[in-house]
């Protein structure tokens, strides 16, 4: 870990200014991802702006009947909120399917959205990795890629967004609220928040440098049955091989997004029209462009089978 300087910001605008004003500066929220990566010198910030005093830790009702979740609300607090549990079950379920109790206590809403990939080559600084070091190559494509993306990847990078919460937020059509150094707010639909790797795999999201996430807002509740199904080798404390976030209405229509398969939560709204016809009808179009590797080809049928389980459980209930 390189040496850095540290400060605690008092207001969102001050924090955004502090990061924008200094090259190499980064926000520090829970630290559960950033500090991990700093120890390995995968992240090498020269200055940390600790955001814990920004008072962005409340969950409030919005005028539109939705919820506004402060950027610093912990994963535990978010999943525990009675409104979230009642009206946005898929979100609570996704969160508690992730990481561990200890990590969720520290992990923040913003930090969780911005957690970086768990690609093992990204984590090993001896290895070529375009995401960690642009232009160095991608060791994963012809390497050990069991965990990695099957769709939306590029010949530069096949990493996945490893998180669970974002998959649920995608199904809920959440919006990421930000503020920049000039104090200007911006609202980014979750669909546009994470990027595909393309030729710039080192850029995970569409946040501008120094742009601070202040909140995530949820639209009005959708009703229906909320499911988050996470498939993994070990029963807990493991990242998803494939996950499904779904909100299914009683008439069989619904929304669905997949985790563990792409550089961002994978959802194509048009594919959802086929929900009443069953899982295969949906995934055929959702994964039409899948280009899995030898190691992760199983994820495509697994995605279909997982969605089938989700639908079947609903029918059984």
């Amino acid at each position: 870990m390189r040496l850095f300087t540290y400060e605690r910001a008092k207001t969102p605008a001050e924090a955004a200014r502090a990061v924008a004003g200094q090259p190499g500066a980064k926000f520090l929220a829970g630290g559960t991802n950033l500090i991990d990566l700093m120890k390995l010198e995968i992240e090498t910030p020269t200055h940390l702006v600790d955001v814990q005093d920004l008072k962005l830790d409340r969950i409030e009702q919005t005028g539109e009947g939705g919820l506004k979740i402060g950027a610093l609300v912990s994963n535990t607090a978010l999943a525990s909120d009675a409104r979230v549990r009642r009206d946005y079950g898929v979100l609570a379920r996704a969160i508690v399917a992730g990481a561990s109790g200890q990590l969720r206590n520290k992990a923040t809403t913003a930090g969780n959205l911005l957690q970086r990939t768990r690609c093992p080559y990204f984590y090993d600084t001896n290895m070529p990795c375009n995401k960690r070091k642009p232009g160095s190559g991608c060791a994963a494509i012809a390497g050990y890629s069991r965990q990695l993306a099957v769709i939306g990847a590029s010949d530069q990078c096949i990493a996945t967004h490893p998180g669970d919460m974002a998959v649920a937020l995608r199904v809920l059509d959440a919006t990421v609220e930000t503020v920049n150094a000039a104090g200007e707010p911006r609202a980014i639909p979750i669909a546009d928040f994470h990027r595909l790797p393309g030729a710039t795999p080192h850029i995970d999201t569409n946040l501008a440098p120094g742009e601070l996430i202040t909140a995530v807002t949820l639209p009005r509740p959708l009703g229906g049955r909320h499911v988050y199904e996470k498939v993994r080798d070990r029963a807990s404390y493991a990242f998803a091989l494939v996950s499904v976030a779904a909100v299914i209405q009683w008439d069989g229509t619904g929304r669905v997004a997949f985790g563990g398969v792409a550089h961002k939560p994978w959802r194509i709204e048009a594919a959802e029209a086929a929900m009443p016809q069953g899982a295969a009808a949906v995934t055929t179009s959702l994964f039409a462009d899948a280009k899995p590797t030898h190691d992760n080809a199983f994820k495509v049928p697994l995605a279909t089978r997982t969605l089938a389980a989700v639908i079947a459980e609903g029918n059984a209930a």
Binding site: Y6, R8, L28, G30, G31, T32, I35, D36, D50, Q52, T76, S100, G101, Q102, L103, N105, K106
Partner: peptide, 14 residues
């Protein structure tokens, strides 16, 4: 609340 103390800087705990 329980946390992993390895992923927290001492400075975060004022």
């Amino acid at each position: 609340e329980r946390i992993n103390s390895c992923l927290s800087l001492a400075l975060q705990h004022e």
